[in-house]
Design a protein around this nucleic acid. Structure first.
Length: 260
DNA sequence: AAGGACTGCAACCGCACATTT
DNA sequence: GAAATGTGCGGTTGCAGTCCT
């Protein structure tokens, strides 16, 4: 159908219309700018994907750690695939959802390059479409009978969609039950490795980065993996890793961070 | 051409669990 | 062991782009 790649500009609003939504704590809210993305990417490379509050503070981004983490995980992470899901992926989502319910993070782990948010969004539209279709067909099938039938709630008229949607409730917070952890994890990992990708493969190069240079040292661009997000395209093409004046500023921040 | 409806996605929120102090 | 802090998750919302009338 229609591709929304162009709409990604939402993440980086044009300078003129960039609004300053500020949360009670003084933190910025709303869409991220390209500048913020670059800053965040830089500091994540520096400090790794942890201590998000600290990272948010040190980076000078007027964002919560939570917000930074979300932005990184859902948009900036270099391992992310972008674009529409392939039919295979769509099938996999359906399969895994049938198996695990709304455990989006778990499903995401089985689908390298896709985030829980992405899958969740996909599923939502998927079920919404399904809902609509079944409602439409139910309505057309019952036009000769009563209109009250077609007015019934979709959850009660659609067996397939209701089952999936009911799953939403059944699985509420199910990830916290630690379930049959060991065997399940094993099965999950099997899935991952048959896909040829380890669960935390992205950590490997991240650790490599952290090992390969000390705090405040220049970032060796040769160890930066091929990025997939727009900001990485930008970073590698020119400015971020040869950041010039900004680099001085960042080093200053690092010095402050190191001192504190 | 205009504007309302629809769609897809980024981002926020609240909660619970994990880890650190 | 308790409190504080950090992290991760699922649910939800709001907005921009596209489609349709």
């Amino acid at each position: 159908m229609k591709t929304k790649q162009a709409s990604k500009a939402k993440a980086a609003p044009s300078p003129g219309k960039e609004e300053e939504a500020v949360a009670p704590g003084g933190f910025r809210k709303g869409p991220w700018t390209e500048q913020e993305d670059m800053k965040l990417a830089w500091f994540v490379r520096l400090f790794g994907e942890r201590r998000w509050d600290f990272l948010a503070k040190v980076s000078g981004l007027n964002r919560t750690g939570k917000s930074c983490r979300l932005r990184w995980v859902n948009y900036l992470h270099p391992d992310l695939k972008r674009g529409r899901m392939s039919p295979e992926e769509e099938r996999l989502v359906v399969d895994l959802h049938a198996r695990w319910g709304n455990r989006w993070s778990r499903i995401a782990k089985a689908m390298p390059g896709r985030t829980d948010n992405e899958i969740k969004n996909y599923w939502r539209t998927h079920t919404r479409k399904l809902h609509k279709d079944t409602r439409a067909s139910a309505a057309s099938a019952s036009t000769t009978t009563s209109t009250s039938m077609s007015a019934a709630s979709p959850a009660t008229t659609s067996s397939s969609s209701s089952s999936t949607i009911d799953n939403d409730n059944n699985s509420h917070h199910g990830h916290r039950d630690q379930e049959t952890a060991a065997s399940q994890e094993q099965a999950d990992n099997q899935l991952l490795y048959t896909a040829g990708i380890g669960m935390d493969s992205h950590l490997l190069w991240n650790d490599a980065i952290m090992d390969s240079y000390a705090w405040g040292a220049a970032v060796p661009s040769m160890i930066v993996p091929p990025p997939s997000s727009p900001v990485w395209d930008y970073c590698c093409s020119d400015s971020l890793w040869g950041i010039g004046d900004d680099e001085v500023e960042y080093k200053k921040m690092l010095a402050v961070a190191g001192a504190s």
